[in-house]
Design a protein around this nucleic acid. Structure first.
Lengths: 202, 202
DNA sequence: ACCTGAACACCGTTCAAGT
DNA sequence: ACCTGAACACCGTTCAAGT
């Protein structure tokens, strides 16, 4: 066929299609991706170094919509508790838009520009609130754990435990309160955020 | 060659070898596994349903060494804070023995007998401490997030962020306090556990 | 019962050939 | 510059054939 007059592909279109496949099936393969784009697998390599590079593009997407609180200089500074909570919620909101994507990203840490900007803002807020540098890193790490854990939770299949004979009455009663996802993971995240901030204030 | 007088393989030996491969390389393939066992790939299927079944065996291993606090009936009951902390630590210790295994397990939730026993014990402790059933589930979920997050953290490659120009002074100072893993993740886990328990007491 | 060898469908990637 | 088709090495799995 040769070169088309206007390119059929771009890195962006490839990432779009890959994300759709991940949302629909929980993963993607190069042949499936090519088919969805109406193209042959080898064509993808004109725009992207390989499969790993596509995963990196998806990682960027996962972080791309973190919106940081705009602090107007004229305004009185907000309590650090609220500022941290807003950042954590925005982080999680961006990260949780594509729940089935998250398991593909756990191999390496987030390393995108948006992520660094967010960590910077968190660090400024926490240092201003009086945390020393070591605790600042610890708190950022904990927020990471909370966001990652609850994001993975959204995509996890419903537990078949209820059927198991080994479940004791207390745990069974706790499980009986579980709501369907994504609500359950949202709820756990909010609870965790609240407990975290309360614990930090002490 | 035909059938050997004494079997060369067993599900246990296969799991052992797979775990060694995961520890060494971060993953395993059926051919590599067979080679390490001195056998042909097709032989594995006499003992194991397939690759996924091997992953399930590894999942069992990850949870297999959770040791629960033995509560002597004659003794005065321990404070729930200590009991929960002990369980969480043991959970994490078992889960973190094979850090490079954890990323392979994030697709589905833990569903082994040891896991259920641990959740049961946690639920009993929390209900006795006065948490209602919904909060009991939330706290167990949070402990899961903390253990999973810090276990994944151990295997994560060191962040190359220090080099990035986008890192601001506060975040850079926080990063400068980072110790090498696994100490860093251990430290974050202990800090998180302490913050969590403090937050829960309020 | 348990190991083997050949075979199958599939995957990620490369590259010369086309326009 | 960008798509194609053929090719390569690799993967997970099956199954008849051997003992």
């Amino acid at each position: 066929m040769g070169r088309p007059r206007t390119p059929l592909l771009s890195a962006d279109r490839i990432a779009d299609a890959a994300l759709e496949l991940v949302n629909a099936t929980g993963g993607f393969t190069m042949p499936a991706l090519a088919a969805r784009l109406g193209v042959r697998p080898s064509s993808l390599y004109n725009h992207v170094a390989g499969r790993d590079a596509i995963v990196e593009l998806l990682r960027e997407r996962a972080m791309s919509e973190v919106e940081l609180p705009s602090c107007d200089p004229g305004q009185p500074p907000r309590p650090w508790r609220e500022a941290v909570a807003d950042i954590a919620r925005s982080y999680r909101r961006s990260y949780s838009r594509y729940p089935r994507l998250i398991p593909l990203l756990t191999a390496y840490p987030v390393n995108s520009a948006s992520a660094i900007t967010m960590y910077n803002t968190l660090a400024v807020t926490l240092v201003q609130a009086g945390f020393d540098h070591a605790d600042t890193l610890r708190v950022i790490t904990l927020i990471d754990y909370l966001v990652l854990g609850s994001a993975l939770d959204v995509a996890a299949p419903e537990e078949p435990w209820l059927a198991s004979a080994e479940v004791g009455p207390e745990f069974a009663a706790a499980l009986a309160t579980a709501t369907p996802n994504p609500h359950r993971a949202d709820d756990a995240f909010e609870y965790g955020l609240s407990v975290l901030l309360t614990g930090l204030e002490a």
